[in-house]
């Protein structure tokens, strides 16, 4: 087999194209992250605790530039107890000039989130706990693909396999 300079060029071009698309998507995500001041500018809903407003797989767009949240806002917060970010609504707020304490609840849950908080924690701290910010916009269902891929390792392998295979075959 002879090494053809044109073949090498074409393959390199294709690889660079793939990298460009991936890095472009990554840059867009990071730019959104900077603009909205949150590490998670786009969130995929994982649980049904906010139904019927949000179902599994729905996409939420976040904003985290306000120092105080309002009662009724839907926020994304982290708890030390569970590792996944939780999307719930603000039920109460108690604010002073220095800090804001917040109690949250899922629309579809019968009780507020006291049982989700850490031991002896009675409120979330706006600055410390609500790291994801406030939900501003919504798009349905589009994130379901990512849930399928993360929860089914076999499906993930199959999808990656097919895309690699098609890449190889298309070079013929």
């Amino acid at each position: 087999m002879q090494l053809n300079i044109r073949d090498i060029k074409r393959n390199a071009h294709q690889v660079l194209g793939m990298i460009l698309i991936l890095s472009g998507a990554f840059m867009c995500y990071k730019a959104l992250s900077l603009i909205a001041n949150t590490s998670t500018p786009v969130v995929v809903v994982l649980s049904g605790s906010m139904e019927p407003a949000f179902q599994r797989g729905d996409i939420l767009f976040m904003w985290n530039r306000q120092s105080r949240v309002n009662v009724g806002d839907i926020v994304v917060y982290d708890t030390k107890v569970r590792n996944i970010p939780i999307v719930h609504r603000v039920l109460r707020q108690h604010a002073s000039s220095r800090k804001q304490l917040v109690l949250t609840k899922g629309d579809n849950n019968p009780l507020d989130d006291l049982d989700l908080y850490a031991y002896k924690q009675m409120y979330l701290d706006r600055a410390k706990d609500i790291t994801g910010g406030v939900v501003k916009a919504y798009f349905p269902k589009l994130g379901y693909a990512t849930i399928l891929l993360t929860e089914n390792p076999t499906l993930r392998t199959v999808v990656i396999g097919i895309s690699l295979l098609s890449q190889l075959l298309s070079n013929e």
């Binding site: 309002n70 009662v71 009724g72 109460r92 707020q93 108690h94 604010a95 002073s96």
Partner: peptide, 21 residues
């Protein structure tokens, strides 16, 4: 539509504000 009835009240200091559903 999520409709909610809240009460807003002050605190011991001027800068304190509370709102509860």
């Amino acid at each position: 539509v999520f409709v909610y009835l809240t009460a807003e009240y002050g605190g011991a200091r001027e800068d304190i504000s509370n709102e509860v559903t």
